[in-house]
């Protein structure tokens, strides 16, 4: 693993925010991955010294402000997801890429379910199964992140 810098984390999170702001229309809205969440999880699982629960919270608040949902909803779900992600983070280097992808799938699913729970609590109705499609597109984005910034399991042995 190459060492990472805080600048890379901040810049990728900003790019993720821009992607989140991109005017998605039609089918894109349903398929749109949670850019902020995936990018945040990537850095969280790779460099928890740079991106921790606090970063997740800030990312969530930014998403809340950008999407116009109740302030704090995404912050709460991102924080909890980040915490669960961190709890197994140290063991991930031993896993295969597919196992890690499965782990990320679980985390993304957890965030979606938590968000759904919060929204139902707020009085909304269930939006249909397409609501979970961003988990799949999020996994694709996860692989793009790995292609761009390197896998989690590649310790450099000299």
């Amino acid at each position: 693993m190459r060492p990472t810098s805080l600048v890379a984390v901040i810049i990728t999170l900003l790019i993720a925010l821009i992607c989140q702001l991109f005017p998605w229309a039609g089918q894109g809205v349903i398929l749109r991955p949670d850019f902020m969440l995936v990018v945040m999880l990537y850095w969280l699982l790779r460099a928890p010294n740079l991106c921790n629960v606090g970063t997740a919270w800030i990312a969530g608040i930014l998403v809340d402000l950008a999407t116009g949902s109740l302030l704090g909803q995404h912050a709460l779900s991102f924080t909890l997801t980040a915490y669960i992600g961190l709890s197994y983070q140290r063991r991930l280097v031993l896993f295969s890429p597919w196992q890690i992808a499965g782990y990320v799938f679980g985390l993304l699913m957890f965030e979606r379910l938590l968000m759904l729970f919060l929204k139902l609590f707020e009085g909304n109705s269930f939006p249909g199964w397409a609501y979970f499609l961003p988990v799949i597109s999020g996994l694709i984005l996860w692989h793009i992140m790995i292609m761009l910034f390197g896998a989690l399991t590649r310790p450099k042995h000299k």
Binding site: N52, Q73, A75, Y83, P155
Partner: peptide, 30 residues
């Protein structure tokens, strides 16, 4: 894990305490 030092002071507060703090903060904001 070349980037991680297990020392307490480098890692700062434990993830659990951070999680509790930020969850409380987001619930207050909500």
């Amino acid at each position: 894990e070349p980037q991680q030092t297990p020392a307490f002071f480098v890692r700062g507060a434990s993830p659990f305490s951070r999680m509790v703090f930020f969850c409380a903060l987001s619930i207050i904001i909500m």
